[in-house]
Design a protein around this nucleic acid. Sequence first.
DNA 1: ACTTTATGACTGACCGGTCAGTCATAGTCA
DNA 2: TGACTATGACTGACCGGTCAGTCATAAAGT
Lengths: 226, 226
Amino acid sequence: MTSKPTKAAVARKSGAKGSVQDEAPASNRAARAAERRAAIIEAALEEFIARGFAATRLDDIAKRAGVAKGTIYLHFKDKESMFEELVRLVIVPVVERLTKLPPPAGSVRDLVEAFASTFLREVANTRRGDLVRLIVAEGPRFPAVADFYYREVVQRGIGGMRMLIELGIARGEIREKGLAKFPQILVAPVLISVIWQSLFERHAPLDAQAMLRVHLDLIFGERRTT
Amino acid sequence: MTSKPTKAAVARKSGAKGSVQDEAPASNRAARAAERRAAIIEAALEEFIARGFAATRLDDIAKRAGVAKGTIYLHFKDKESMFEELVRLVIVPVVERLTKLPPPAGSVRDLVEAFASTFLREVANTRRGDLVRLIVAEGPRFPAVADFYYREVVQRGIGGMRMLIELGIARGEIREKGLAKFPQILVAPVLISVIWQSLFERHAPLDAQAMLRVHLDLIFGERRTT
DNA sequence: ACTTTATGACTGACCGGTCAGTCATAGTCA
DNA sequence: TGACTATGACTGACCGGTCAGTCATAAAGT
């Protein structure tokens, strides 16, 4: 195919930030469109996280994505629905990964620990973590986002945790019966980690994994040193 | 939106929101100025919490405070420093109340429980709680706010909790030694409550007090039935 | 009278959203 | 295969509304 640099390609390449690395030959139209869409989503996520919804400029998103502003409107109705769709687009795959993760084996504690560790690795220390903070920040102003997040993430998560806790109680691994009524307690330190990192990392970094271990010791009793 | 039939004088006399109660003749100048300043602060807090920093309009703050826009600029340099000062003004008295609260008596658990209950009552279920969410939301964009909050609230809070935990360990009330390294765990459920309420109250209200009790049972062992 | 405080109309930068025009590519035909 | 046309993805100048901040004027206080 043409190795001649197209105008668009040049613009994209010179479009700073280096966030999107040199991509494929940009074969057919549909593929290019998908690429651009992806670039817009990536750029928008970055900007929204950095500035919040209201303070984010569509011009900046466009520039970062190496695209003209008008192009954004070929993919999204307006700023608001773009934001809402964005949240869905980022969260759905994460939820999918996490829901079909645990092959039931070993003790409840191992299960919980494996699960939480995965979460910490995949979410807490990536941009996903900032997304959580973003949702906390913008949720009240975007009921649609809050609803979606509650339905897809919180409700499921709480439900799953409750099942694990009940299993743990039945097996005698967990002593505190009341925990089944508040699975939030199980999750709390993980969430705190996420928020802590994005606010106070530079003041005092927090070893989330270690904290998690202490917290699980609290719930399951002192860990036998395997 | 705010539809206010407003002449400033009328608004002031009728005590617009009922938040500022009808006060004395307000004879001297300083007193009136202080009043107006307080009204502005109150109004600004409300608006910032409801809309976030960027989306809040100074016109709305002025209207809510029953004051002309220009008046705001007699008290604050600009929107940004107003926001920062606001956070300080609201947080300082709360910190003061909490720091000189506990007259050391009884078990560590009682101390912690009393402290946390006070916090829940005074913060979680008031506008102060939303302020916490606001700080989480805007912190990254206002380093000054994040710094202040870390220094005045988080650092002190963590320090205090650590002392309590160490006391608890020394007295044998707390078994898990690792907790002293992560006082965040002690506080986590309280913070989660605050966030939960402001995001998901309408989906599923959360009994923060009950959750706190379960959490403390986890840390101090089953509660002795007094 | 004169100083201090308050007002709100006004300004100008800024930004979300639009749309007429461009041009690389896909499709068609010989 | 090469030439010509049709398509629609993409562009970016532009528009109109919005809003932080200003300042000439008015009111209040002494």
